[in-house]
Nucleic acid binder design. Sequence first.
RNA 1: GGCGGAGUAGCUCAGCUGGUUAGAGCGGCGGAAUCAUAAUCCGUAGGUCGGGGGUUCAAGUCCCUCCUCCGCUACCA
Length: 520
Amino acid sequence: MGESYYITTAISYPNGRPHIGHAYEAIAADVIARFQRLMGRDVRFQTGTDVHGLKMLQKAREMDTTPRALADEMSQYFKEMCDRLDVSYDRFIQTSEDEHHRASQAIWQAMEANGDLYLDRYEGWYSVRDEAYYGEDELVEDGQGGKVSPQGTPVEWTVEESWFFRLDQYQDRLLALYEEHPEFLQPDSRRNEIVSFVKSGLRPLSVSRTSFDWGVEVPGSDGHVMYVWVDALTNYLTGLGYPDMDSPLMKYWPADLHLIGKDIVRFHAVYWPAFLMSAGIPLPKQVFGHGFLLNKGEKMSKSVGNVVDPIALADAFGVDQLRYFLLREVSFGQDGSYSPEAIAQRANADLANSFGNLAQRILSFIAKNLDGALPAVHGHTPADAALFATLEVALQRDLPQAFGELALSQGLEAWMRAVFACNAYVDEQAPWALKKTDPERMQTVLATLYIAIAQLAIAISPVIPASAKALLDHMGVPDDVRSIAGMGSHWYSPLAESDFAISTPKPLFPRIELPAEDAA
RNA sequence: GGCGGAGUAGCUCAGCUGGUUAGAGCGGCGGAAUCAUAAUCCGUAGGUCGGGGGUUCAAGUCCCUCCUCCGCUACCA
């Protein structure tokens, strides 16, 4: 087993069905997880749902059910989405689990033992109807000299007892963290925002609520449940067995990467490290705030009615096509835009035409002309060596480097360069012409391409796992070759000399024909 | 208001610490090929690098200013 690698997604708040944004994050995390496995790392990948809080409680009331039943039901949709999209999580956590309550209470007690929690009053403008506090600056005039909430509901000055966390005590240590470890928070633009936020001054953070009870109880403080972020963030530890520091899974801590959306960067880059410092737990190595997915350039929202169901997209375009599109088309870290046209175009151009067709033309040529027997190598020429060199640079250097830096779309560009090189090589070598003039050379060319196609499939497997596996299985590529380190090993000749024969292939990625209007 | 990003070929974007004729992919156009999913390959497209000013032998690449868009500016997750 290689060095451990722990990656997490944010846990989703399931007060609605999963949308494409959830799918995007899960897929991106899965690609990174699969890539690290391909690099030989011992990977632990966690995702899940954050089911506590007021909104779930309200939703449950609306639906005349219990919050727990609602949480179980809604979480199932998220789990199904992950399964449908080939998201290879090792642990799907739901914050209503007993283990999670224990972990949250343990970290609470650790913070309390460190003297960072104290009981005080939380005061503010409270709207009974909204069940929420508003800041002075958020209030709007009601036209009659009074103030109302942004929703137009009446507010009253309310005082509630609350536990507070001494966040202000961590300002300097947090700034030192960002300074000394710029990689802790990425992309850079996010770090800048957080640095300026922290520099502007931190106040103690209210970390408990008494107005509802759907959450983790504060130990020894009846009537208080934890403020959602204490509980939610702790999920990353729960999944490893915390507070049992001797749990075999604790070897995965500290996490290598918390992959989250840009909207919750502050909680992960300010509150979370402060909580951990307080509790005496090592900090995660990196928090990465990805961008949002826009529907044809517009923000998705229920009111506009442009929220897209990821399952429907997967059904329409294929799971691997969707995965590939999201990673290739969106510059990781920035917002991205998608549309049925864009997905179809990208999937057709890169997967169907360039890569799929490459595999199809070569494998069917072998099946047809050599009865499926893998061709022998009769000495490589400089042209073959040049192709192998191009592949090595693209697949064993550039792509891993880019993926390692979370420059996912750039990694895929490197992969495409290798695909292009293979197609150019096919046309230059023209095995169909060699068939008549130089059958031995034709065999070498086909063998070279066979190896190349396998390498391409291995390198891209984190992104299009099902298709890559199907292709590699069809080609008889041994399992131990299927890694970045293994793809360059000497596996071809033994396979060619065995009695393996390749059957007539079917196109890997059928071309997507878009219905006249739209497909999603 | 404050802080921080962004504005580069029709589209999506690369362009690090300033330096030969500003790049890629897609689309478009022309050609080649015919093994393959009408897929592939080759060539091409001449964009005031948001406007203006400045520094420099030399600026998308640094400085100033203006315009446009976006993000952050704590307790809804």
